[in-house]
Nucleic acid binder design. Structure first.
Length: 762
DNA sequence: GATTGTGCCCTTTTT
DNA sequence: GGGCACAATC
C-alpha cells in the first residue's frame, strides 16, 4: 500500500487517501486525474472496502473502459470487476431495469437512440399536422432534451410561461405539445431515450425514498470523473445517492468543460462548495503528460477565456520540440501532409502507429485524412462517426431482436414490417398507424388480433400481416429455449435479410453482409463470456440480455486484432486520452471555432476550451494544420486560419511554418489580415441559400464563364451565392483567386478554378 | 406496391 | 457531394 502511494505526488496522495467525506479535485490537463481516481479505487479496496459499495461514473464508454482496465491492472480482476464503473447512462439504465416496475415500465424497456427519437418526433409532427420545416426535428429534439436534462416534464414545459414565451417568440409555440406526444409514444413503445434514463432515475429517487435509501446504503462511496460535464439531472442523482454517507469524490477541470451544448454546467462545480461546505479541495496542477512547449501553448490559449477558475498548470518536463504548423491548399492536401508527416516520424524515430492521433472538430473531416492514410498504407481506426451499431443493416437485424424482446417497440416494428419486402406497403402501414392511434393501442397490439385490423386493408395484405405476426411470435416462443446466439442466428436465417442483400449484389451489400456476420459474432462472444458474478457459473444468456445496453454502446467497443493503428477521432471523443504525437487539423475560421459558435462569448469560449483539450492530448509533439480551401456543402470554400492560431506565441512554433501563415511565403494568403473586419456580415451559406439568392441562380442551364475572363469590376453570378461584384483578382492558372462581394452573402474569396462564375456584365 | 428519379436540406460536438 | 423525402412511372 505504501508502495501504491509512493507512486504519487503530494496532492495526488491527498486525493487518494481521503476516502471519507466530500472531496473535490480540481485537476489541470495531464495532471494525473484518472491516475488519482484509479489509485483511489485501488486504495479503497486495499483498505478492505467492499468493491460492491463503490460506484464510479464517467461520461464516455472509452473513459469507463480505460478506468476499468487501469483498476484491474492495479488490483486484479476479481475485485475490480465488482466495482460499479461505467457511464452515467449505463449505470443508471442498469438500476432502472431493476426498478422499472415502480415507474410503470417493464424491465425489458428499450433505449431509443437519437435516430429512433428523431423518427418519433417526425411521427408526432405528422400526428399534429405540423410542418416539419417550421419544426426542424433536430431542433425540437434538442429542446426536449434540454427540458429533460433540467427535469422539466411535458406538463411543466407547457405550463411554464417563460418557456412558452421563448417558444412563441421563436415561432415554435407547439413544442410543448410535441414534447407531450413524443413522451406518449415512447411510453407506449416501452422505450426511454437517453435523457429519460437520467430523468426517470431522478423520478425514482424522488418518489420512492425507500428505493433511494437502498442505493444510498449500498453505494457508500461515489466517484465522478469529468464533473464539469455533468448536467442538472446528473448532478441531482449524484447528490441524492451521496446524501447519506457523503463519501463523494468529484474530479473536474473547468477549462475542459466542453459539453455545455448538452446542458452541462460549470455551476455544478461551484455548487459543490455550497452543498458540502466541509469538503476537502485538492488541486492537481503539475502536468506529467506534455512538454513545456505544449503546456505553454495550452496556457496561452486558455488565458483568453474570461470565464475560468484561475489555476497554474506547469510541468518540469523538457522543453521539447517546437509546435509544427502545416499549411495546405486544400483539405485533401492537408490529409496528405499529415500522412506524410506521420510516415516520416514513424520511420525516423522508430515509432508505432498507435503513437499518433489525428483530432478534428467534426466527424465529416475524417474523409480526406482517411484517403491519405490509405494511400500511404498507414493503418488507422476511426472512432465515433457512424458506429457499428448505427449501420443500416445492423439496425435492421437488431430491430427484429428488439421486437422479439419488446413487441411494443414501434420504431423497430415500422422499420422491419416490410423489410425484407413482404408486400406490406406504405398505404397499408399508414392505415395501421391511423387505426392504432384511433384505438389508442400500439400497432403490434392491433395486428396481433386479426379482427382489429381495419377493413379497408385488402385480403392479400392481411394475410401477409398475419404471416409476419406469426413469424415474430415463433421467435418469441423460442426466447426462453435458446441462448442469445442460437436465437439470433435463427432469426437471421428466417427473415432473409442476407438473402435480400445478396440479391442486391452491390459492393456495399457485401460489406453489409459482413457487418451482419460481425454482429452475430459479437452476440456469440457475449454469450460465451458472461457468467454469474458470484458463482462463476456459466449462465444461459438470453437475447434480451444482449439487447439491454446496445443503444448505449457507441464506438466499436469490441477489440480488434490489430491495435497498432493511427487513431482518428473528434476532440470531444479524445477527452481523457493522451498520445505522444497529436495532429489537430482543420484550424480554420468557421470550422474551428465552429460557425455555429462564433456569435456569443460563451459559445466561443467553449470552442476555445475544446482547443485547449485538443492541445493537451499531446505528450511529445503537437502539430497543427489548416487548409486554405475545403469542401463544404458540396462547394469548395476558401478558408482563413483560425483565430486560435494567433493565440499561441510565435516563439513556440517551428520558425519556418509560423512564418508561412503570417503571410511571408511565396503565395500570400490575401484574406488573412483583412477578413476579420467583415465578419459581422457573414451569414452561414445554408441559412441564406434557401432565400431569394438561389432562386435566381439555380437556373438549370447555368453555364460558367471561362475563369481567365474574370476581371475586377465585373458583375458575376455564382450558383450558390447569387449576384456579386468582383473586387480583385490575383494569382495565375490554377491558383487564380478572386475577391467577390455578393449581394446576399457579403465578401468572399473564391478559387476561380472551382468557383464556376458566370459573367453578367462588365 | 415497388422502383426510379428529383429536389432539398444539410453539418457541430455525445450518451 | 450525399442522404432523404416525396413524386412520377412501371
Amino acid at each position: 500500500m505504501a508502495d501504491l502511494l509512493s507512486q504519487l505526488n503530494e496532492s495526488q496522495q491527498e486525493a487518494v487517501k481521503n476516502i471519507s467525506g466530500p472531496v473535490m479535485v480540481i485537476a489541470g490537463a495531464g495532471s494525473g486525474k484518472t491516475r488519482a481516481l484509479t489509485f483511489r479505487i485501488a486504495y479503497m479496496l486495499m483498505q478492505g472496502i467492499d468493491a460492491f459499495s463503490i460506484m464510479a461514473l464517467t461520461f464516455t464508454n472509452k473513459a469507463a473502459n480505460e478506468m476499468k482496465e487501469r483498476v484491474t491492472r492495479l488490483i486484479g480482476q476479481t475485485e475490480g470487476r465488482n466495482v460499479w464503473m461505467g457511464t452515467f447512462h449505463a449505470v443508471f439504465a442498469r438500476i432502472l431495469r431493476m426498478e422499472a416496475v415502480h415507474l410503470g415500465y417493464p424491465s425489458s424497456f428499450v433505449i431509443y437512440d437519437t435516430d429512433d427519437s428523431k423518427n418519433v418526433i417526425k411521427a408526432v409532427l405528422k400526428d399534429l399536422n405540423l410542418d416539419p420545416k417550421a419544426y426542424p426535428v433536430s431542433n425540437v429534439l434538442h429542446r426536449i432534451s434540454n427540458a429533460k436534462s433540467n427535469l422539466i416534464n411535458d406538463d411543466e414545459y407547457i405550463n411554464n410561461p417563460e418557456i412558452r414565451d421563448a417558444d412563441f417568440k421563436a415561432n415554435k409555440p407547439l413544442i410543448g405539445e410535441i414534447y407531450k406526444g413524443y413522451n406518449t409514444r415512447l411510453k407506449r413503445a416501452n422505450a426511454m431515450d437517453f435523457d429519460d434514463i437520467l430523468y426517470y432515475t431522478n423520478v425514482l429517487f424522488r418518489d420512492f425514498p425507500e428505493i433511494l435509501y437502498k442505493y444510498q446504503h449500498r453505494f457508500k462511496y461515489i466517484l465522478v470523473d469529468e464533473y464539469q460535464d455533468t448536467n442538472y439531472a446528473q448532478y441531482l442523482i449524484v447528490k441524492r445517492i451521496a446524501a447519506l454517507h457523503e463519501n463523494l469524490c468529484v474530479v473536474g477541470d473547468d477549462a475542459q468543460s466542453i459539453y455545455a451544448f448538452r446542458g452541462a454546467s460549470i455551476q455544478n462545480i461551484l455548487n459543490f462548495k455550497n452543498d458540502y461546505p466541509e469538503h476537502l479541495l485538492v488541486r492537481l496542477e503539475q502536468n506529467y503528460r506534455s512538454t513545456k512547449n505544449i503546456v505553454e501553448a495550452a496556457n496561452q490559449v486558455i488565458k483568453n477565456n474570461k470565464d475560468q477558475i484561475k489555476k497554474t498548470v506547469w510541468t518540469d518536463k523538457e522543453t521539447g520540440d517546437p509546435i509544427s504548423l502545416l499549411r495546405a491548399s486544400s483539405d485533401n492536401e492537408e490529409g496528405v501532409l499529415v500522412a506524410n508527416s506521420i510516415f516520416g516520424y514513424r520511420m525516423s524515430k522508430q515509432l508505432n502507429n498507435k503513437d499518433f492521433a489525428i483530432l478534428y472538430r467534426t466527424n465529416a473531416q475524417s474523409r480526406s485524412l482517411e484517403e491519405a492514410l490509405r494511400k500511404q498504407s498507414i493503418p488507422y481506426r476511426i472512432y465515433g462517426g457512424t458506429s457499428f451499431y448505427n449501420r443500416r443493416e445492423v439496425k435492421d437485424l437488431l430491430a427484429y431482436f428488439r421486437l422479439v424482446v419488446n413487441p411494443q417497440d414501434e420504431e423497430a416494428l415500422l422499420r422491419i414490417i416490410n423489410y425484407p419486402i413482404r408486400g406490406i406497403g406504405k398505404t397499408t402501414v399508414e392505415r395501421l398507424i391511423v387505426a392504432a392511434n384511433e384505438q389508442n393501442s400500439s400497432v403490434w397490439d392491433l395486428i396481433g388480433d386479426p379482427h382489429k385490423i381495419p377493413s379497408e386493408i385488402n385480403r392479400g395484405a392481411i394475410s401477409k400481416i398475419v404471416d409476419f405476426v406469426t413469424m415474430i411470435r415463433s421467435f418469441q416462443s423460442l426466447h426462453e429455449k435458446k441462448n442469445a446466439f442460437e436465437l439470433a442466428s435463427h432469426i437471421n436465417k428466417s427473415v432473409g435479410i442476407i438473402k435480400a442483400l445478396k440479391e442486391e449484389d452491390s459492393p456495399e451489400s457485401i460489406s453489409r453482409i459482413e457487418n451482419i456476420e460481425e454482429l452475430l459474432n459479437a452476440i456469440m462472444e457475449f454469450s460465451d463470456k458472461q457468467f454469474d458474478e458470484t458463482t462463476g457459473e456459466q449462465n444461459q444468456i438470453r437475447l434480451a440480455d444482449f439487447m439491454q445496453d446496445i443503444a448505449l454502446l457507441t464506438d466499436q467497443d469490441k477489440k480488434t486484432e490489430n491495435d497498432d493503428v493511427v487513431v482518428l477521432m473528434t476532440i470531444h471523443a479524445a477527452k481523457g486520452l493522451e498520445f505522444p504525437y497529436v495532429y489537430v487539423v482543420g484550424l480554420e475560421e468557421n470550422l474551428f471555432p465552429s460557425i455555429m459558435s462564433i456569435n456569443t462569448r460563451a459559445e466561443l469560449e467553449e470552442e476555445r476550451r475544446l482547443f485547449y483539450v485538443a492541445i493537451t492530448r499531446a505528450e511529445t509533439k503537437l502539430t497543427l494544420s489548416y487548409a486554405e480551401s475545403r469542401y463544404r456543402y458540396g462547394n469548395i470554400m476558401l478558408c482563413e486560419p483560425s483565430r486560435f492560431l494567433d493565440e499561441i506565441d510565435e516563439s513556440l512554433f517551428e520558425q519556418t511554418k509560423k512564418a508561412s501563415f503570417k503571410g511571408t511565403s511565396s503565395q500570400p494568403i490575401q484574406s488573412f489580415s483583412t477578413t476579420n473586419t467583415h465578419k459581422p456580415n457573414f451569414k452561414p451559406p445554408h441559412q441564406a441559400a434557401s432565400k431569394s439568392a438561389t432562386s435566381t441562380s439555380t437556373d438549370s442551364e447555368f453555364e460558367p464563364s471561362d475563369p481567365e475572363a474574370i476581371m475586377p469590376g465585373m458583375t458575376i453570378l455564382h450558383q450558390k451565392f447569387g449576384k456579386g461584384e468582383v473586387l480583385s483578382v490575383e494569382g495565375i492558372g490554377a491558383n487564380k483567386k478572386a475577391s467577390v462581394r455578393f449581394l446576399a452573402f457579403g465578401q468572399k474569396q473564391l478559387i476561380l478554378k472551382f468557383a464556376k462564375l458566370k459573367i453578367i456584365s462588365n
